[in-house]
Nucleic acid binder design. Structure first.
Lengths: 205, 205, 205, 205
DNA sequence: AATGAATGAGTGTTCATTCAT
DNA sequence: GATGAATGAACACTCATTCAT
């Protein structure tokens, strides 16, 4: 009577526990003991399901990337026009409404710092950023081409907006009451619209 | 016959050593031994000049804030018009020319991550961010008032640009070849100008 | 309807797996997981068939003793004269021909080290050595008495040859290219003959 | 007022402590805690003076090689003739008199087992064995050439005697009361003499 | 018989901090 | 001021053994 494997479920629990602990205390202080306690598991079990602490972190990065993807798709939902989809994207990434998850944001900021140090983390972090850049570029290009404008600058614009998003996460996690309330989603969208309009004017023959 | 105190010089050496090591390996891996080696000093000496490792880190935050201040003032130099000063600021913060210091940027990103975790670091990090926000707000407000426009939105605009700067630091440190070359300074200035112009139009009676 | 017990077969598989892993990585690094993997079994099963890891080791010692016994008997085969049987013994223990098993030798060396540390292993190891000493003593005594010589020194001679064999195993396992090729079987037999001859002369009245 | 380095002294203490613990419990069970306790030092200090446990072991191998060298030279002392020096060598390696050190022997047996597993240990172990083989070859060759005999077989003879020595160490450490008392030094010398004489007869034209 | 998850004590190693010199 | 040894509490990871299924 063999036992049913439950590794996938356990791995999920462990990854979620890392997210929680890391959001509060950073990666180095997210010890195996602390993660295990958060997950309600014996410490040794973590190394049964993952071969190293870094592997848990890498799993978390991909889990957060998936989460972001789902959140966007859910909010984009019925959006039809390119502009509606762009707005949905900003809401999904920077909005303060339902589903805004400060823990996810803080964990992501910690991951960004680890990506500077650990090559393996950097690799998967970079892939996530690259994917995000593609997605945002495409959304912007759609807005441009809808009005028959040149899409040449879409990538630089996307890069700038992406940087703004990452910076907003960082500042939201590391400061209290310094930044104006709700500036991020609003400003990002404003920048996007101004740039799209300016592009329109510039490229207009 | 007491020796000439050299504490200030020593403290400076130690802080610079922390910056170097931290840029490469992050704060947790910047051990007292590693910092001492980088500085060419005996490990025990670090705790003579600083009471804790965290105190070195706090000193580094203020040192980097001062460095940023000096770099701006130097580049701003003879700039006269508000717009020239704003351009000088962006160059100082995001420019790729002389004095662009990737080590400083990487160290600053690591500090940002520590600010999420350590209250004492967060405190001085927040002050630095707040000062920066004031500076950038003032530069933008000057541009606006030069043309007799309302300065109401200057702070939000400054916040968004600041976020973009921090995000650009993060992405520059944690990715290679993903972001378009030189997008940051260019885009930030473009956003600033578009926003200033738009403000002008909006607030125009 | 009870299943057909396969415990004996399973125990054999497990013991053989320990031999393989131990030859490569030593006893301490021969983990239950590694043995199970080598045997193609689930880790938990090992503790169903054996009550402890040490018990597997003890089984291996007796298995190797049996193996050595069989190998000698097979090679001795049709040998009739005492000298032929002695030669067969040396071939079985030190020969490089068919059936020379480096894995067995390496495992035996590891067992020898464990015998120093673990009383229970030492006990069965000692018994094996004692049996071997008796066997070799008898072979030598037969050679002596065939020529009507005193057999007094047979035991000391056997002890010395046994030591040489064990040392040859050790050096074969722990060195590469240091020892002259094929020195062991040859030298042991030469020593035996010289000693037998010398005994003959000495005891000849 | 800088502190005087005492690393060399401490390293010696630590290596001696490893020897003691290892003789009793083997290498794997010679934990850093156990070694530290034996040496009367704090566990952390061991990694201040050595970068790893393996490095302590490697130091022990060379220390034991030096010890053996000194013991031979001391016993050889005033020995003049080649045969006297050969006898001194056997006494130094296998004798039971003053200075016979069962702890050293047991530690050496444990080292032999580790040499099978750890490449770095094997390297230094092999060098020691090779040096020993050279020494013994030279001693035997001197005996042969003194009587104007061919020295061709000296190396094989040395190898066989070396194997006997290593095997005697193993059996002395892992068995009690099985092996005849004092067989080793006596038999080794006897083998050497018989072989030398036989060589003499064979090569005599 | 068999499975594979679970446990928890133990390992080598790291490291901020202290302190005698 | 300066040195480098010393401390001891972490840490990630390992592993024999147990146990529910």
């Amino acid at each position: 009577m063999p036992r049913k494997p439950n590794t996938e479920a356990r791995r999920g629990e462990i990854v979620r526990a890392l997210q929680s602990v890391m959001a509060k205390h950073g990666y180095e202080k997210a010890t195996i003991q602390a993660i295990a306690k958060e997950a309600g598991l014996a410490p040794g079990l973590l190394h049964y399901h993952f071969s190293s602490k870094q592997e848990i972190l890498v799993s978390l990065v991909t889990a957060l990337a998936d989460y972001g993807q789902r959140r966007f798709e859910q909010i984009a939902g019925t959006a039809q026009s390119p502009m509606e989809r762009l707005t949905a994207y900003m809401e999904a990434r920077l909005g303060l409404g339902d589903g805004a998850a400060p823990e996810v944001v803080a964990a992501w900021v910690m991951i960004g710092a680890e990506a500077v140090r650990q090559a393996e983390v950097r690799e998967v972090y970079q892939r996530t950023i690259a994917t995000e850049l593609e997605l945002l570029s495409a959304l912007l290009a759609n807005c441009l081409s809808e009005h028959k404008r040149a899409t040449t600058g879409a990538r630089e614009l996307a890069a700038a907006l992406l940087a703004m998003m990452e910076g907003a996460y960082q500042l939201a996690s590391a400061t209290n009451g310094v930044m104006p309330a709700g500036y991020a989603a609003q400003s990002a969208l404003r920048f996007a619209k101004l740039s799209l309009d300016a592009t329109a004017l510039e490229s207009g023959a």
